[in-house]
Simulated assay, not measured.
Amino acid sequence: MPAPLPHEHLPSVPALVVESDDIQDGERLNDLHVFNDWGMTGGNLSPQLRWSGAPEGTRGYAVTCHDPDAPTGSGFWHWVLFDLPADTAGLPRGAGTGPDFKGLPAGAVHARNDYGTKDYGGAAPPPGDPHRYVFTVHALGVDKLGVGSDASPAVVGFNITANTLARGHVIAHFGV
């Protein structure tokens, strides 16, 4: 039985529509979005995302990417981005990839991912069954989460969950 998805244990909220020109729900993750280390030779670029359908009262957004199938006991956080302004409706390909983070709106904050960096880190599963990569957009009732970029993904996730008005996701898979 596969590991539960990160949103399956969270309180129920309305759904956002999340789409991407780069990743499709249920499809294989393109090598552009795979890590470029740990034996991988991908592009390590964050995918293009766009969203719609946020409820009234949305004051900001957060974007996360989580692999619930990583053999860690807690999954693996690949991307933790928050404090996106309420007028943000998407991110271009590579917006989460440093050092310049072109395409990120002013004020957006990256927290540490499980690679220990403050950016998008692509897929890098061990050999075996494919892993799922859950790209989630959270509509928030606050404009700032009130946590810093050194916060762990769990602390950021706690604050995201406490302030989520709606969420949606796209789930891709990748394996070697």
Rank of each mutant, 00 (worst) to 15 (best):
M1G: 14
A3H: 10
A3V: 05
P4Q: 05
P4V: 10
L5N: 12
P6T: 11
E8L: 04
H9Y: 00
H9G: 15
P11K: 00
P14H: 06
S20N: 12
D21V: 08
D21G: 13
I23M: 10
G26I: 00
E27T: 08
E27P: 01
V34Q: 10
F35M: 11
N36T: 13
D37T: 12
T41W: 03
L45N: 13
L45P: 12
S46Y: 09
S46Q: 07
P47C: 10
S52K: 10
P55M: 09
R59T: 04
G60F: 02
Y61H: 07
A62L: 03
T64L: 03
T64G: 05
H66K: 05
P68C: 03
D69P: 07
A70F: 11
G73E: 11
S74Q: 14
H78I: 06
L81H: 08
F82Q: 01
D87M: 00
D87I: 00
R93K: 15
G94K: 08
A95M: 08
A95K: 02
G96L: 09
G98S: 07
G98R: 01
D100V: 09
A106K: 13
A106T: 13
G107R: 02
G107D: 12
G107Y: 09
N113W: 03
D119R: 13
G122C: 12
A124W: 11
P126G: 14
Y133N: 01
G141P: 05
L145I: 02
G148V: 02
A154T: 09
V155N: 00
A162D: 08
A162P: 00
A162K: 05
A166C: 07
R167K: 08
F174Q: 02
G175R: 03
V176D: 09
V176E: 07
V176W: 09
V176K: 08
